[in-house]
């Protein structure tokens, strides 16, 4: 599991995508990350590099992050060709440096997709994901006037499956990793979460049609079942959710 072989501190060469703005050309630049403790997280390693850049009056590397515990979905970069790096089921902020070896070269790139414009360096604009939710990723109930929570029993299995899907943190790694930059895993997860619950049933048809239409309008690619998405998803969301999305779409479209 750990590659650093018990070594406490390692030195790395980083090649980081630097791009000042969305309509400017970017390129990889090389930095040294020296004396990196293997207990650090990947983002803490970047912090260390940035501190040095700032002190030397150079522009620090911009990257998104917030919770640093794998739940907010803010962080993410393609590390050595893998979205969120080499560890399975792990966000970038939860990736630790013990998974790297001394003198490794690490290539760090932003999520790439037509739907995600680069804002700066590793920071991309993922508002397309919000736009998809706005198109129908909700149950139309207003506050107040809802029945007692135990009025509708939900089979435990359905609730568990809904929870599996609802665990999506909206990070966008599935799209970054997909050879087609398709957003089907994200949309599949959201549609599944609501379609599996009786509360979501009344709007199921409308929801799936609207969300898929929005997804297409945003410029994401088409799913060809490459399964790269589920392989990189930090919440290990399964492509059975994509199948369910397809099913819901067929139901909504033809029935």
């Amino acid at each position: 599991m750990t590659r650093s072989n018990g070594k406490k501190n390692i030195n790395l060469t980083l090649k980081v995508w630097r791009q000042v703005g969305s309509d400017v050309k970017g390129r990889l630049e090389t930095y040294q990350a020296n004396n990196i403790s293997t207990d650090m997280s990947f983002l803490e390693m970047l912090d260390v590099v940035n501190e040095e850049l700032i002190i030397n009056h150079r522009d620090p590397i911009a990257f998104d992050h917030d919770c640093r515990e794998g739940i907010c979905g803010m962080c993410g970069a393609v590390v050595n060709g893998r979205a969120h790096g080499p560890e399975k089921g792990t966000t970038l902020c939860q990736l630790h440096m013990r998974h790297f070896s001394d003198r490794d070269t690490v290539i760090i790139e932003p999520w790439r997709s037509r739907a995600f414009k680069i804002i700066k360096d590793l920071v991309v604009d993922r508002s397309a994901l919000d736009a998809i939710i706005q198109a129908g990723g909700y149950i139309s109930v207003s506050a107040g006037g809802t029945p007692d929570a135990n009025v509708i029993p939900v089979p435990q299995e359905a609730a568990e499956k809904a929870m599996d899907a609802a665990a999506c943190i909206g990070c966008g790694a599935c799209i970054a990793a997909c050879p087609n930059a398709s957003a089907m895993l994200f949309v599949g997860a959201k549609v599944s979460h609501l379609a599996l619950l009786p509360q979501g049933a009344p709007e199921a048809a409308r929801r799936v049609l609207k969300m898929v239409q929005k997804m297409d309008d945003c410029g994401f690619g088409n799913c060809t079942n490459e399964r790269e998405c589920e392989a990189v998803c930090p919440k290990e969301i399964s492509i059975t959710n994509i199948a369910r999305l397809n099913r819901e779409y067929i139901k909504a479209g033809f029935l």
């Binding site: 909700y138 149950i139 109930v141 506050a143 107040g144 809802t146 029945p147 007692d148 929570a149 509708i152 609730a159 568990e160 809904a162 929870m163 609802a166 979460h193 609501l194 619950l197 509360q199 979501g200």
Partner: peptide
């Protein structure tokens, strides 16, 4: 009640 109606998978 509100959260269950919204589809929170408790």
């Amino acid at each position: 009640d509100q959260c269950v109606a919204q589809g929170v998978p408790f």
